[in-house]
């Protein structure tokens, strides 16, 4: 696809002798919301780790805009515009909400705009403004997810990577989280979201990739995937 902001080709990656990804290719265009779905252990988290530089691919090409991800240290990528909300949120539970946001604004460009970004995040998540001086670890799961997303937004990213934002949350909260994702989309941000919750995620993304045992087994628009009988029986329980 021309004009893709994120482009992966032939990515192989893994941990030690264990290979988790086999020749995975993926593109995301600016402003798009793309999902990566698949069963547990399919390599979804590994894929995000490759994109945010946490894991070096063994082979293949990964580019974000002009940046060669595989050749860039992970801590440089937020300045390039990649923000990753990791699995299980990984907030700093002993820091306050605002301090978590402050860590998110660590890079020099973000420090200059701290007040502005903070206001932006608080406007998006008013609940966080109420709890700005509360320790992050004492909040509910949904609030923590807001905080984790807010922390990632502090560095004014061009793309937001979300890893299982609904994991471990009550169904009602899951619905709220996906609402959040849609709001972020509404801000014009590019989103790449990894989920096991296939039915919900297909409602918020434009396109999706289906990952299984480290291979891309299907891709297409969310409408097409939702209509695909194989996908339906595998992930959507047929309804």
């Amino acid at each position: 696809m021309e004009g893709a902001v994120l482009r992966l080709e032939g990515i192989r990656a893994g941990y030690g002798d264990f290979q988790a990804l086999f020749d995975v290719g993926l593109t995301v265009s600016p402003g798009e919301a793309v999902g990566v779905v698949g069963p547990n252990g399919a390599g979804k988290t590994t894929l995000l780790r490759v994109i945010s530089g946490m894991l070096r691919p063994k082979a293949g090409m990964a580019r974000f805009g002009e940046t060669d991800i595989a050749a860039t240290p992970a801590h440089v990528l937020p300045a390039v515009g990649i923000a990753h909300v990791p699995e299980n949120r990984r907030l700093f539970p002993h820091l306050t909400v605002e301090e978590n946001l402050k860590v998110g604004a660590y890079i020099p460009a973000a420090r200059k705009r701290f007040a502005e970004r903070c206001a932006y995040v608080y406007d998006m998540f008013p609940r966080l403004r109420e709890r700005r001086h509360q320790l992050a670890g004492t909040m509910s799961g949904g609030e923590q997810q807001m905080c984790a997303i807010g922390r990632a937004l502090m560095c004014s990213p061009r793309i937001l990577l979300l890893d299982e934002p609904s994991a471990g949350l009550a169904p009602l909260v899951v619905a709220q989280v996906f609402e959040l994702v849609q709001r972020i989309r509404g801000e014009g941000l590019t989103v790449l979201i990894v989920e096991q919750n296939v039915a919900q995620v297909l409602r918020v993304v434009d396109r999706a990739y289906v990952l299984d045992a480290g291979h891309v087994v299907a891709e297409g628009s969310s409408a097409a995937l939702a209509a695909d009988p194989a996908i339906r029986s595998a992930f959507l329980g047929g309804h």
């Binding site: 992970a74 801590h75 937020p78 300045a79 990791p86 990984r90 860590v103 660590y106 922390r151």
Partner: peptide, 10 residues
């Protein structure tokens, strides 16, 4: 482990 995601070089 999570620090590089915030642009922090440990």
């Amino acid at each position: 482990e999570v620090m590089p995601l915030m642009g922090v070089d440990p």
